[in-house]
Design a binder for these strands. Structure first.
Lengths: 224, 224
DNA sequence: CTTGACCATGACAATTTGTGACACGTACAA
DNA sequence: TTGTACGTGTCACAAATTGTCATGGTCAAG
């Protein structure tokens, strides 16, 4: 139940049934943002799991405890749990605490690598840092956020055929439904704002049976 | 009883018998690390005290209440309490929570002198110390405290898409309810004060389905 | 030239966001 | 205590954006 609630709210969840199970999940490679630990797990005691986790990782831990187990809760916090929640609890509260804990732990984090701040093509400049497009004459050309998203996907994948499926996936992380024409329409709208001749588009070419193709050479540029 | 217990454990305690009393203690100058607030106080309601405290201070608040219902807990947390303890509780647990809350609140604390006193963007200057915004021409632009809070969150997280959830969380430490539009309204009010063209905002962009995005480059500046 | 699949786009619907109006709580002054 | 001003959340409706559909155009193969 909690898994689906968290999933609905945009988290990826891996459930573990026991300490052993948890180890498996932790070891399986993916980065874990937060552990929610029920001390009432069968098998290895939750407190011991907590201590063990703390020994090898700084991952945030939220402990969920049953009623009337003051001692557990105290020991949990003293063992380095970041927060705890007595049962029964409101799912919404768990959500709020997970967010709070994750925010605290990611506070100092830097996004790795440096994304270029501007991409230029045929005189146009797409300022990624400002989410703003500038025409060759320097005038800003305002795009809706969907148009900007598509254009930045093209700029990051120039001279490549992108299928509707690819585009939809890169845009929304979802697969295309069979009759989905929404990409076509968005392309049409974007063309209106950057193409000179709509009857013979030069930037965004249609690839029949294939998808779309962004023709310009794109160069990363310093931002100024 | 609690006073002597806490004192025995190395804390300095100032007891207050009412909201009025608390104000007196808070005003008396000493730095307060944590407030333990019993909602069952006679006189001013604990929740109202909590709200009032939050309005003027970021001091950690632990609420103690007799009625251990979800609703109270959530209301308390939404009003900005940092933790919540149902009665009856074990003194040792209170101790653990006080320590946890204090650990959290000092965690992100900047050694004084390192926190930039001013942040500048596109000629504007946000004076963190005075909670005051100055336009490029040097004229002060007065912001309400909510507007200031949002703007400072943006200045601390520029060029990042912040969801309404993130913003609400950073503002009040609470999760967004489904129909919560308060962020939109606050953004709208803030835009009115800093954007030149409300129809095509340049500082705060909307990211549809995503949240908001603060475009300027922000530079910490010495204060003078 | 015809055919059938595919694509472009106007028109409209659904969804999401913007914002004026209002209500409520608080602060402050009279 | 009362009156006034202010800040902020909520609501309702307006505006903007995006998705869906239908129509007509385009293209390649035969």
């Amino acid at each position: 139940m909690m898994t689906s609630y968290m999933t609905d709210n945009g988290f990826e969840v891996a459930a573990a049934r026991s300490g052993r199970d948890l180890d498996r999940v932790m070891a399986s490679g993916g980065k874990i943002d937060c552990v929610i630990l029920d001390v009432g797990l069968p098998g290895e005691d939750g407190l011991s799991i907590c201590r063990r986790l703390r020994g090898k990782s700084t991952v945030p831990i939220i402990m969920v405890t049953g009623r009337g187990t003051d001692t557990d809760r105290i020991v949990g916090l003293e063992l380095g749990a970041d927060d705890y929640l007595p049962k029964p609890f409101n799912p919404r509260e768990l959500l709020a605490r997970v967010r709070a804990v994750m925010r605290r732990s990611t506070q100092g984090e830097q996004p790795p690598g440096e994304a270029p701040q501007s991409l230029t093509f045929e005189g146009w400049r797409l300022d990624m840092a400002r989410r703003q497009l500038f025409a060759p004459d320097g005038a800003p050309r305002s795009l809706t956020s969907g148009e900007f998203n598509i254009l930045s996907i093209f700029c990051q994948n120039p001279r490549k055929v992108l299928s509707r499926d690819d585009l939809l996936d890169l845009l929304h992380g979802r697969a295309a439904a069979v009759f989905d024409r929404s990409i076509d329409v968005q392309i049409s709208r974007l063309r209106r704002k950057i193409e000179i001749n709509l009857k013979d588009p030069s930037f965004i070419k249609t690839v029949r049976y294939g998808g779309y193709f962004f023709t310009p050479q794109v160069v990363a540029a310093a931002d100024n």
